Amino acid sequence: MRWFLVSDKALGERVRELRGWLFTQRQLAERAGVSVDLVRKLEQGTRNSASVASLHRLARALDVSLAELVGPGSLPEQGSGEGVTALRFAVSGIDDLLDPSEIEPVEPREVERTLTYLWGVYWAGRYDQLVSLIPSALASLRAETGNPAAVAHGYWVAGCVLTQLRQPDAAFIAIRHAVDAADQSGDPLLAATLRGSLSWQLMVAGRFVESEALAVRAAEVIEPRGEVSPPGLSVYGSLVLTAATAAARARKNGRARNLLAESSQVAHRIGEDRQDYQTAFGPSQVAMQSVDVGVQTEEFGDALTAARVMPNAGAALPLASRARHLTDRALAHARLGQHDKAANLVLAAEQMAPDWAKHQTLVKSVTRDLLGTRESRTPRLRSMAGRIGVR
Rank of each mutant, 00 (worst) to 15 (best):
A150T: 02
A287Q: 00
G386A: 10
G20H: 12
I222P: 05
A213Y: 01
D355N: 14
V240T: 13
L362R: 15
P188C: 05
M288I: 04
D328A: 05
G196W: 09
E107P: 09
L162D: 01
R176A: 08
R257A: 13
L336D: 06
Y122C: 02
Q351G: 11
E223N: 11
V6T: 11
M288H: 13
L370N: 02
L55I: 06
G206F: 10
W123K: 15
R387S: 13
T305V: 14
D187N: 14
L28A: 09
E299I: 00
L98P: 01
A287L: 05
A316S: 15
L87C: 07
V39F: 12
F89H: 09
S7I: 00
R113L: 11
A215E: 06
H153P: 05
R176D: 08
S284Y: 01
L5E: 12
A174D: 03
G20L: 04
L42I: 02
P354C: 03
V34A: 12
T378Y: 02
T367G: 03
V221S: 12
V91I: 03
Q338F: 01
Q265A: 15
S321L: 05
E82H: 07
R257V: 10
Q351K: 10
A170L: 02
D95K: 02
E223P: 07
A178W: 02
P224K: 14
D37W: 11
R60F: 07
V240E: 13
R255C: 04
T114P: 01
Q265T: 14
N312C: 11
V179C: 09
E107C: 03
G71I: 00
A170D: 08
G314V: 01
Q289E: 11
P168L: 01
P135F: 07
D369G: 07
M384T: 10
R335G: 04
R19L: 14
R19P: 12
E210I: 03
P76I: 02
A139L: 07
V235Q: 07
E375T: 14
A315I: 05
M288P: 02
L18D: 02
G73F: 00
P76V: 02
R380I: 02
L87T: 06
L189M: 11
A29M: 08
L118T: 08
S136D: 10
W123L: 06
G125V: 00
V221H: 04
L233S: 12
P311D: 11
D99L: 04
G226E: 06
L370H: 09
L11G: 12
G146E: 11
S35G: 15
V6M: 05
L319C: 03
A342T: 03
L97F: 08
A261L: 14
H177Q: 12
L138R: 09
I134F: 08
R322A: 00
Q129S: 04
P76E: 06
L87H: 06
M310W: 00
T242A: 14
R274A: 13
V121W: 06
G81W: 09
L198P: 08
R47G: 04
L239M: 06
Q27F: 09
R166T: 12
S80R: 10
